[in-house]
Write a protein that binds this DNA or RNA. Structure first.
Lengths: 195, 195
DNA sequence: GGTTGAATTGAACGCTCGTTCAGTAGAAAG
DNA sequence: CTTTCTACTGAACGAGCGTTCAATTCAACC
């Protein structure tokens, strides 16, 4: 070896992914060219292929990385009752999503631009997340804490409601993050319990 | 005039919009070419320009038409109390969206592919819809029927929850439309009222 | 049945796309 | 100083893009 392995690659590689994430989120995967990404990184288009086999793999890596980080955050789910766990889940979902807007965005918008194989893997990871939420609802239902006619539907409804925050929340807006979390938790709690 | 005005256009025009809507929803605006649309209609690409000034106008027309139909459906909002109106709203939103999946989809996915001017108009129409929902929540709040800390946030949360249905509902699935509407209405009702 | 004109073709315009690859630069190792 | 090898350039490939337009087709009217 004549040079520290990846002496530049250690900087350029992450930068490529950063810029790709930002551009994919802003303009959409199909509308962003490899040349645009390269320009933002400060490279010629050909150099990108040092860091990704192709454009599709770049998208997939970004989406998979996002889902894996989301899922690894679930390891902090506190022990305790389903009510406390659900509150933690609501707050985690909102705060994580708001601090990773681009990742959330491409994971919802770019599913259809994945190859069949890649689509399956991202859907699988999303399913793991949904299952984690449903597990809490099922536990609460079994203990008589929740009144939910269908736990799967309730899971999807809760996640959908929480996802909505990303479409309108602005840091400079009327409501603080804490208040947004608090109000959503109140709505979710009331929706899954008698009151 | 030597031919009934638009003797073919009466058939071809709507077909162009139908196929464009379907393809935009399936693959995304940026990923669909005018040649693809033309092929599905049974034309050469150039002929599309008899029916639309350009690709952007085609997308905008589809999105505006969708929003206008959604809004005109609101004229059937029944008179009566806020609770009854909110239930109608929940059922209308779910059933309309499920019967116009492609239109809903492009209105959420393709906003960023609109020119600034067109984006403003679609956002305005969406705002009118949101205001209609919020008006019901405000009315209920004023009469002491609802307990909502922030009606705008509650509006966005309710709409987001209902939008979620389109991502997972299948006609051949486990739950009937009526049951999905019923459960969502229960959740919304409990979320905005004490119980 | 010839005339009219809307509907459509098919070729062309300049441009951008994702990807490949021979060649080069330049920092680290010997 | 020479060697080594990673990082990168810059040109090229074939393909497809949105859009334009002269020429053509053909159903409806007089």
């Amino acid at each position: 070896m004549a040079r520290k392995a990846g002496s530049h690659a250690e900087i350029t590689g992450p930068k490529v992914r950063e810029e790709a994430l930002r551009l994919f989120a802003q303009y959409g995967y199909a509308a962003v060219s490899m040349r645009q990404i390269a320009k933002h990184v400060g490279l010629q288009a050909g150099a990108l292929y040092t860091y990704t086999p192709d454009k599709q793999a770049l998208l997939f890596d970004l989406m998979r990385d996002h889902m894996q980080k989301v899922l690894s955050g679930l390891e902090d789910l506190p022990e305790g009752g389903p009510v406390e766990q659900l509150e933690w889940m609501v707050r985690y979902h909102i705060s994580y999503n708001l601090s990773h807007k681009d990742g959330v965005f491409i994971n919802y918008m770019e599913l259809r631009n994945l190859s069949e194989e890649n689509h399956l893997e991202i859907s699988r990871l999303r399913g793991v997340y949904e299952d984690a939420v449903e597990a809490i609802l099922i536990a609460g239902q079994e203990r008589g804490l929740f009144q939910i006619p269908d736990t799967r539907l309730a899971t999807m409804a809760v996640i959908a409601m929480l996802n909505g925050v990303n479409t309108w929340y602005r840091e400079s807006g009327r409501l603080s993050l804490e208040r947004v979390e608090q109000i959503h938790w109140n709505m979710v709690r009331r929706a899954v319990t008698g009151s």
